[in-house]
Nucleic acid binder design. Structure first.
Lengths: 175, 175
DNA sequence: AGTAGTGTAAAACGATCATTTTACATCGTC
DNA sequence: GACGATGTAAAATGATCGTTTTACACTACT
């Protein structure tokens, strides 16, 4: 594992576990097992590091979004939450912690959400032969976000409930 | 407006706008218009201040939860998000920023969510004459959380979509 | 053999963090 | 008219913040 990969994955873990602002560079340095000089050579700054962590997170999460059905979408989310974490959406957390004041971070967050919504629109169009109202895609998106948030305090079962609700709405749109 | 009320409401605003960790005590002092000595006399510590802000937030939000129908629940959420903020759930944000490591904060967050879920269970029981599966209440909760999260980047219209989805699920459970 | 690249360890930078302290002013109340 | 409560202004606390710097070691290529 090369230096930059090690840095980004250590940073992702710490940011997810303790928050962005609360995670100091000294903690990052220790966790990544490198000197501060090396860290800054690769990351540039803390803001840039956060941005790169989000972009890497998106890359890693991508396969869980790029699926062909609502069932696969929620199955993938359930798998992610069971194996990775149930600490809420890291993108929205980054946005909240920075107040939307740092353009690079805001951009990474909005790009991720735009891709998620686009994909859900595609899936819904396919599953309903384009007959569903545009509202349905937003409702599936909301169930997706809601499952991610509710899983924080209700556990991965929340994703199962959301999955069933999404299936019901889809079934209703088809008839 | 007495000193403590002024402090808590200034703190709530700053925490919501810029995040908890990123908001320094100097900013709080200026925004609340008081000396650091007075602030600490009333708040005790930053952690205690965050806890009190969350408790006050819950008190202020309470009327939006304590309603008699799913319709009223989502109408109240829509009104809150349109008039207050669309920055996500302040409780979950506090939990995320502190990593769940500060017991007083974690407790305030979980108490709020427990109250929300309890109330939704009550509402669902009333609206379905107790005939709905226990899952339905969790699904309404998920739509509620999802609307709050999605409103950050899709605006208050997300609440309208969630409202319609909740009505549809409820209608389906009744038939 | 020499050099560019990539790394480490550790100190230092000034700024900012949450918190405490010192010294003083303004109250309403007994 | 003294007193306790409640406030202000401002300096000082020591720790921690993100970042830069100085000095040195290892490795790979020409």
């Amino acid at each position: 594992m090369d230096t930059k990969t090690k840095l980004i994955s250590a940073a992702e873990q710490l940011f997810d576990r303790h928050g962005f602002t609360a995670t100091g560079m000294d903690k990052l340095i220790k966790a990544a097992g490198m000197s501060s000089r090396t860290l800054y050579k690769h990351a540039g700054s803390k803001t840039a590091l956060i941005t790169e962590v989000l972009k890497e997170r998106h890359r890693r999460f991508q396969p869980h979004i790029e699926v062909g059905s609502v069932d696969a979408l929620f199955d993938a989310l359930e798998e992610w939450i069971r194996s990775e974490s149930a600490r809420g959406c890291l993108f929205l957390r980054a946005y909240g912690e920075t107040g939307g004041d740092i353009p690079a971070i805001t951009e990474a967050v909005l790009a991720h959400k735009a891709r998620l919504y686009d994909k859900i629109q595609d899936i819904v169009a396919i599953e309903t032969d384009g007959q569903a109202m545009p509202e349905l895609a937003e409702q599936i998106l909301i169930l997706y976000e809601g499952a991610t948030a509710a899983a924080i305090y209700r556990g991965p079962e929340a994703v199962v409930s959301a999955h069933k609700a999404a299936s019901a709405l889809l079934q209703q749109a088809r008839s």
